[in-house]
Design a protein around this nucleic acid. Sequence first.
DNA 1: GATTAGATATACATAATGTATATTCAATTT
DNA 2: AAATTGAATATACATTATGTATATCTAATC
Lengths: 205, 205
Amino acid sequence: MPPRSYVSPARSAAAAETRERVIAAASQALREGESIARFSLDSVAKAAGVTRLTVYNQFGSRRGLLEAVFDEIGRSGGLHRLADIMTMGDPRAALDRLAEIFCAFWSGDAAVGRLNDAMATDPEFAEAVRERNERRRKSLTVLIDRLAAKTASAHARKDAVDLIFALTGYPTYAALSPGRSRDDVCRVVQAACRAAIEPLSDRPD
Amino acid sequence: MPPRSYVSPARSAAAAETRERVIAAASQALREGESIARFSLDSVAKAAGVTRLTVYNQFGSRRGLLEAVFDEIGRSGGLHRLADIMTMGDPRAALDRLAEIFCAFWSGDAAVGRLNDAMATDPEFAEAVRERNERRRKSLTVLIDRLAAKTASAHARKDAVDLIFALTGYPTYAALSPGRSRDDVCRVVQAACRAAIEPLSDRPD
DNA sequence: GATTAGATATACATAATGTATATTCAATTT
DNA sequence: AAATTGAATATACATTATGTATATCTAATC
């Protein structure tokens, strides 16, 4: 006799709620903890008021939990605004805006720093994060192609894309962050990005 | 009765040799391993042909070993050439040279990538690495002050120093490295550094 | 020959991830 | 109302690391 299975609204709602509670506890632990090394499923479970096994039930592994936290931050970090910049008339203004959006993203939740650290300890998690970052490179490639002069070589375009990709990434933000407000970091990054597209313009050299 | 202690040439020589053997095994493990997470004192000790406790005898801890590897790479990585650039007449040429030296350094031994990852897991090790990196910032500060126009604000100088510090650091190298030769990465970094000092020159605006 | 430094042998404490099995309890289904 | 199911729990265990403690071994030195 096949087991009769069913979906339970109250059940899955309760499960979703504990799931969110665990994610909240995890991201707070990342935010407050000084190092990713001290981030343990044990402490997260305790903080969320569940058992460690419940965490495994919901996320499968430490990595699964980290990815869930990353996705949550991604949703609430303002990256949805990236959709707008592709429709902007001036690609240079769009580039400025992209830098602004990512400065806001990297500074929005201190947990992103710890998640970045987690890339060092878990290669598969690192790969998952990199995949999401590649969207930024994709957007950049489109913008650069729009603003580059016809005479600009593919080589030069790729250099600009990759350099701006690095400039708008987390490590650069973290390097410029000490001693600077979010806006000041943004200004420095924007200036560097503008300089990076300079060789692509149609001036004589 | 106080124990009579003595220094033994043969003993300390043998100890220094095992120490070097362990460092060599550790850096090779870092070079070949895919992640810092899999770097264990157990495997290093086995590869070096000693016991794990010998590693503790020599380096005190995992962190101690990592710092020893870092120092070894620092000694053999060509950073001694930094002394020359401070005596160069043209500070812009010196800046080019600095970028070149560090591109060579980051690409010279793949273990540096893993050591960079280790910063994420061990805050105190991270602090030790940062201290060594600060020497680069010091050099940069001197160079920037030499090439900046008198009218350039302290603010603008600091921006240039910190931006170039980021550009010549490991994360930027690692970001530009896929798909590029060491020399190509160097060219991109140098161009970005030159652009970063552009606002400091004495042109009307 | 006694002593000492460096390496080893053995054992243990601690903490973390991850797996396995059985059980409790409330929400559904019949 | 009774049987069943999903989510969470309880308990236990395997594995892998780091790090500490104590005693022993061995060759170099006094």
